[in-house]
Amino acid sequence: SRQGARGAGGMAALDEALAEIDRLAALPHVKGVGETGLDFFRTGPEGKEAQESSFRAHIEMAKRHGKALVIHDRDAHADVLRVLKEEGAPERTVFHCYSGDAEMAGVCARAGYFMSFAGNVTFKNAQNLRDAVAVAPAELLLVETDAPFLTPAPYRGRPNAPYLIPVTVRALAAVRGVDEDVLAAALAANTARAFGY
């Protein structure tokens, strides 16, 4: 049981936090629920159970309130996709700081999930991300900073910030072989659709 995994105090705290998120998600100016999801980077079995329970609650809230679901997925691709399939994903689902490969991008594309790319797409060791950018449908691409992290090359080492978004957009355009302005217009339209602007 959830209670057995975390104790009554942990269960009460999670339920209280989820109730507050639910209250905030109902506000008209709130555009999304998240970031939420699964992060198995340094997580044991009890933590995985708690995360999955919380993730399922966030999915339900996003659907009930008609908000975008913004997903954090670290070392948990298969489980994130499984939970989304089991729960039924919201109409607008965004993979924040997309970290999958081209195969996962195909799964996301077939499901209609948005894939948001950050500055790490410019890193030398990130060919998997560039491969995903190449196969993701243009209408499902988003861009972000994840500030202050994942600063694009050649500015790595500095805090990331919105002024560096054009560097990431330039990298995405190069991978796709399209004009930067054309891609920027598509990204703006996708953002409006993803978040209901």
Rank of each mutant, 00 (worst) to 15 (best):
A136N: 00
A78P: 09
K124A: 11
K85F: 03
L129V: 08
E60N: 09
E60K: 15
F117L: 07
E86T: 03
A126G: 02
L129M: 08
G106E: 14
A118R: 02
A105R: 05
A118H: 10
H58M: 04
N120R: 11
C97R: 01
R82C: 13
G106Y: 10
C108H: 07
K63Y: 07
A136S: 12
G100Q: 05
N128R: 14
V94W: 04
R130K: 10
A109T: 14
S116W: 08
S116Q: 13
L140G: 00
K67T: 01
A138D: 15
A134D: 10
G66L: 09
G88I: 05
S116G: 13
V135T: 10
L69S: 11
M115I: 02
K85L: 03
L142Q: 07
L141K: 02
A78K: 15
H96R: 11
K85Q: 14
F95S: 09
L141H: 01
R64K: 14
A118M: 04
L84I: 06
G106F: 09
D101S: 11
T93D: 05
L142H: 09
D75R: 12
T93H: 05
V135E: 11
Q127I: 01
D131V: 00
R82W: 13
F95I: 04
N128K: 15
V133Q: 00
R130C: 01
V80M: 09
N128L: 13
C97N: 08
V133D: 00
G100S: 11
H58G: 08
L69Y: 12
A111G: 05
A134W: 11
R64N: 11
L140W: 05
R130D: 01
L129E: 08
A138Q: 14
Q127H: 06
H65R: 14
A105P: 01
K63E: 14
F95Y: 15
L140A: 04
V133I: 13
A136Q: 01
N125S: 11
A132R: 11
A111I: 06
A134R: 15
K67G: 05
D79T: 12
L69E: 09
H96C: 10
N128G: 00
V80C: 13
L140N: 01
H72L: 09
F114T: 05
K67E: 01
G119N: 07
A102W: 06
P90F: 13
H58I: 01
R92W: 13
R92T: 06
